[in-house]
């Protein structure tokens, strides 16, 4: 597994961006057992310009588990999440100063890593649902079409499986060609999840996916996360501690850019090792 792994995200000649067939679903995933460490964050220092956002974070994210990042605003949890698919590259002056992030053993900041390949494998769902102002069908097929997939039957198939995967199929199957923006807030967020599923990532990053949703829509997303955990590695940033407690297997508590505690969710909430964690999860600050 290790020998074949480096090729997964390597920079290839430009043609690789639109190779003819859809990448087979995470070939290695079958090999790596659930629970093995998929993402290794090692002594990560991260800066926005002169401002240090992360201080020496070390964390292992397990394969096909749900990992929650919690902590008060500005604690660096979203920053860390956005490091995992290098979305922070888009921000001027943002940089990793020290340490590394390894996914399947490959340092994702290595110069021969193609960030496009990385993002295909590490999908993302944003805080504010951002369906494109296109039809539902086009939203889902967007990622595949970028990779050069033009086979209509295949695209239709992916639309159905992705929407089913995101528990949205029954609600939208009769209006696949209407705008994705006509959906309700919760449906839009599930559409974004479906869109991420369509490119068959291994890891799905969720940046406060429910913060703009009502409790009913939130419950649906949480239910969805429970279903997705068997096939994907999910990292979720949330402000809602009950949510972290409900959906995650492991929880990491951050405070002021430092990882305070990382353990099984049950331990974090029932029997935290640090006083700060205890104070936060019991609602005494933050």
């Amino acid at each position: 597994m290790v020998t074949s792994a480096p090729s997964l995200m390597e920079t290839r000649p430009s043609a690789s961006v639109r190779h003819p067939t859809v990448a087979a679903p995470a070939t290695g995933a079958a090999v790596a057992p659930a629970g093995a460490t998929l993402v290794d964050i090692d002594q990560l220092d991260f800066f926005y310009g002169a401002l240090q956002a992360l201080h020496g974070v070390t964390l292992g994210i397990e394969n096909r588990k749900v990992t929650a990042f919690i902590g008060p605003s500005g604690c660096g949890k979203s920053t860390l999440l956005r490091c995992l698919n290098r979305m922070n590259d888009l921000i001027d002056g943002a940089r990793v100063a020290k340490g590394m992030i390894k996914i399947r053993g490959i340092d994702i900041h290595r110069p021969d890593v193609d960030v496009i390949e990385l993002r295909k494998r590490v999908g993302m769902v944003f805080q504010k649902s951002n369906p494109f102002p296109k039809s539902i069908h086009e939203n889902i097929t967007y990622g595949l079409k970028l990779q050069g997939q033009t086979n209509k039957a295949r695209l239709d198939e992916v639309v159905e499986t992705s929407l089913r995967g995101a528990a949205l199929w029954d609600e939208v199957k009769d209006r696949l060609h209407t705008s994705g923006l006509g959906l309700s807030g919760g449906q839009q967020q599930r559409l974004c999840i479906a869109r991420a599923l369509a490119v068959e990532p291994e890891v799905i990053l969720m940046d406060e996916p429910c913060s703009a949703l009502d409790p009913v829509a939130t419950a649906k997303i949480e239910e969805l996360i429970q279903e997705l955990r068997t096939r994907f590695t999910i990292v979720i940033v949330t402000h809602n501690m009950q949510q972290a407690a409900r959906v995650s297997d492991k929880t990491a508590f951050f405070y002021l850019g430092k990882l305070i505690e990382y353990a099984d969710t049950r331990t974090i909430f029932m029997n935290p090792a640090h006083a700060q964690t205890e104070a936060y999860v019991s609602g005494r600050f933050g």
Partner: peptide, 27 residues
């Protein structure tokens, strides 16, 4: 054009130019 459209596209593995051409310029 909202930033979310660019980020959403990039997060799906689009290049910057693909993002601009398909998901920014039309709007």
């Amino acid at each position: 054009v909202p930033r979310g459209f660019r980020e959403g596209s990039l997060a799906l593995g689009a290049t910057k130019w693909q993002t601009i051409r398909k998901n920014v310029l039309p709007y």
